[in-house]
Simulated scan of single mutants.
Amino acid sequence: MRKAGGGAIVDVNSIAGLTAAPGLAAYSSSKWALRGLTRTAAKELAPDGIRVNAVHPGIIDTPPAYGPDGRELVPVDDFAIPRMASPDEIADFILFAASERARFATGTEIVADGGFGLGPMS
């Protein structure tokens, strides 16, 4: 990227890097650490024209979102957007962060959580 004159790095983090995740101490702490890495890399690489941003997805409709019984591990009915994200929806955020359209952003965290961080609607 340095030889090319710049570029973009997008870290895929998690909403677990923004809030407490009971029962997921190791996972959550690794996601909090990634936040620090993202911001440090953004500062270190900025002089080389390399942007570093993070996307924090919420619950994505993929196999890890379901238990062995097929039930949702995190019920989404009470989110502001009461459903899981599709992988394509999260990919759109990642593509945006990597694109020239986000050329003025570095060290930024894009939250794509369907309103999870707002807390329950009721």
Rank of each mutant, 00 (worst) to 15 (best):
F116G: 01
S86E: 09
H56F: 09
G36W: 04
D88E: 15
A91G: 03
T108K: 04
P87N: 12
L95Y: 11
I50F: 07
G23A: 01
S28H: 02
P57F: 03
A80P: 00
P75H: 10
A98E: 03
H56L: 02
A25R: 12
R71V: 11
V52K: 02
I59C: 04
A21R: 03
G7K: 00
P63C: 10
M84K: 10
F104N: 08
E89C: 05
I50T: 08
A105T: 09
G107Q: 01
G7F: 06
R101M: 13
G114R: 01
V10H: 02
A97W: 06
A54P: 08
R39S: 09
H56M: 08
D48N: 12
R101V: 07
R39P: 08
V111F: 07
G5F: 01
L45H: 04
P68G: 14
D113I: 09
S99D: 10
R51V: 10
A8L: 08
A98N: 02
Y66R: 09
E89Y: 06
A91H: 09
G67R: 13
A21W: 03
P22G: 03
F116E: 05
T62H: 01
K31N: 11
P120I: 03
V10K: 01
P47I: 09
P75G: 08
L45R: 04
G67H: 07
A54C: 10
D78F: 02
P82W: 09
D92L: 13
R83L: 01
G49R: 03
S14L: 04
D88S: 15
L37H: 05
A98R: 03
T19R: 15
S86V: 10
Y66V: 12
F116N: 05
I50E: 07
G70A: 07
T108H: 13
D69R: 13
K43R: 13
